[in-house]
Amino acid sequence: MVEFHNRTEAGRMLAQSLMDYANHQDLLVLALPRGGVPVAFEVAQALNAPLDVCIVRKLGVPGHKELAMGAIAAGDIGILNYDVINTLGIDKETIKIVGAEELQELQRRDRKYRGDAPPINIKNKTVILIDDGIATGSTIRAAITLIKQQQPAKLIIGVPVAPASTYEELKLEVDEIVSLMTPKIMSAIGLWYEDFSQTTDEEVEELLRLGGRRR
Results as ranks from 00 to 15, higher is better:
Tyr21Glu: 08
Gly212Met: 07
Thr126Met: 01
Glu203Ile: 05
Val84Glu: 13
Met19Thr: 15
Tyr193Gln: 12
Glu3Met: 05
Gly78Asn: 09
Gly35Ile: 00
Ser165Asp: 15
Ser187Gly: 06
Met1Thr: 13
Lys171Thr: 11
Ile77Glu: 03
Gln150Phe: 06
Ile134Cys: 01
Ile77Val: 10
Pro118Glu: 12
Leu210Thr: 04
Asp20Lys: 15
Gln150Tyr: 12
Glu105Met: 02
Thr199Gly: 01
Val29Tyr: 01
Phe41His: 13
Glu168Lys: 11
Lys125Ile: 12
Gly158Asp: 02
Asn81Asp: 07
Ser197Trp: 10
Asn81His: 03
Met69His: 09
Arg215Gln: 10
Ile189Gln: 00
Ile77Cys: 07
Trp192Tyr: 14
Leu28Val: 12
Gln107Glu: 08
Val2Tyr: 07
Val37Arg: 05
Ser197Cys: 02
Asp116Pro: 11
Leu180Gly: 02
Lys96Ile: 08
Leu106Ala: 02
Ala153Asn: 06
Gln107Trp: 06
Gly36Met: 02
Leu180Trp: 02
Leu172Ile: 04
Gly75Lys: 06
Ile189Tyr: 03
Leu30Asn: 06
Leu129Ala: 10
Val84Arg: 06
Lys92Glu: 10
Glu169Val: 09
Gln16Ile: 14
Leu88Val: 11
Thr199Leu: 13
Gly60Ser: 06
Gly36Cys: 09
Val53Tyr: 00
Leu80Met: 10
Ala10Ile: 13
Glu102Cys: 02
Ile77Trp: 04
Leu155Lys: 00
Glu102Thr: 04
Gly11Phe: 07
Gly78Trp: 02
Glu176Lys: 14
Arg12Ala: 15
Val174Glu: 00
Leu28Ser: 00
Gly35Ser: 09
Ala22Gly: 11
Pro62Ile: 03
Asp132Ser: 09
Thr94Pro: 00
Ser197Leu: 12
Ala117Asp: 09
Arg12Ile: 15
Ala143Asp: 00
Arg108Cys: 03
Ala117Pro: 03
Ile140Asp: 04
Pro38Leu: 14
Asn124Cys: 09
Gly36Trp: 06
Gly70Asp: 04
Val29Ser: 08
Val127Gln: 00
Gln149Glu: 14
Asp83Arg: 12
Lys125Met: 12
Gln150Cys: 08
Thr87Met: 07
Ala31Phe: 07
Asp52Glu: 14
Lys154Ile: 10
Met186Pro: 00
Ala153Val: 08
Glu102Met: 11
Lys171Ile: 12
Gly190His: 05
Thr145Asp: 12
Ile177Pro: 06
Thr145Val: 08
Ala44Pro: 13
Gly78Leu: 05
Ala73Asn: 03
Ala10Gln: 00
Glu203Cys: 13
Leu208Tyr: 02
Gln198Gly: 09
Glu168Ile: 10
His64Tyr: 14
Asn6Ala: 05
Thr87Pro: 07
Val56Ile: 15
Ala71Trp: 01
Leu172Asn: 12
Ala40Thr: 06
Ala74Glu: 15
Leu32Ala: 12
Thr87Trp: 04
Val29Gly: 12
Ile134His: 03
Leu27Asn: 02
Ala68Ser: 13
Ser197Ile: 04
Gly133Pro: 13
Glu168His: 13
Leu30Asp: 04
